[in-house]
Simulated assay, not measured.
Amino acid sequence: MSALDKHQMKFFDKILRIQTKKPVEIVDITSQISQLVQESKINKGIAIVYSPHTTTALIINENEPGLIKDIEGAVKDIVPWGKNYAHNAIDNNAPSHIVGSFLGNSLNLIISKGNLELGTWQSIFFVELDGPRSRKVLVRIVGE
């Protein structure tokens, strides 16, 4: 019997729904992701968190109100929002796309002993860059 035969890989898929309220907003989704890890009953593996939207991002950082406000402000400073971008002729949201591409749309999180391996001050955030909107985050948990 091979090592693969002993350990059957499991997959667990869920969709989180998020309703944002502001044009740029950072939403803590740590508790929802942790809850899904518990629900998956996967003891050791990886949680893949993915946003299928081009004007959103996923980040890990500290959940401190001043820092969240600072990050929301910095998001608006990464690229000039008042510039005449070619894409603005279509949707008028080119900066949202550009910032989203800089920040990234997925996270890979390690699961050990049935829990997320996050640092002491780390939280998982969904970043809205073109709200308010109804959004979704896809979560796939893989492991044993």
Rank of each mutant, 00 (worst) to 15 (best):
I141E: 04
I71T: 08
V24E: 08
Q122D: 12
S51L: 04
K44F: 13
E64I: 09
H53I: 02
E25A: 09
G143E: 07
A3E: 13
E117D: 11
I29E: 07
M9V: 15
Q32K: 15
G131N: 03
N115R: 15
V139F: 11
L16M: 02
S123M: 01
F102E: 00
K10C: 04
F125A: 04
K69Y: 03
F102S: 03
E128A: 02
L129W: 07
Y85R: 08
T120C: 04
G114D: 05
D70M: 05
N61P: 00
L16V: 01
E25H: 07
K113Y: 09
E144D: 14
I141F: 08
D91G: 12
R133K: 13
K14P: 00
S101N: 12
V99Y: 03
T56A: 11
A74L: 15
V37A: 05
P80S: 14
K22T: 01
Q8E: 13
T30K: 12
F125H: 08
G66R: 13
I46G: 01
S96I: 06
F125K: 02
Q8Y: 03
A57Y: 10
Q8V: 11
I68W: 01
L4G: 05
G131I: 03
S2P: 09
I15F: 02
K69R: 09
N93D: 09
A47L: 10
E25W: 08
R140N: 14
N92F: 13
D5P: 00
S34C: 10
N43Q: 15
I90S: 13
H97A: 09
L36G: 01
I90R: 15
A57G: 14
P23A: 13
H53P: 05
Y85S: 06
V142E: 15
I33L: 09
I59V: 15
Q8G: 04
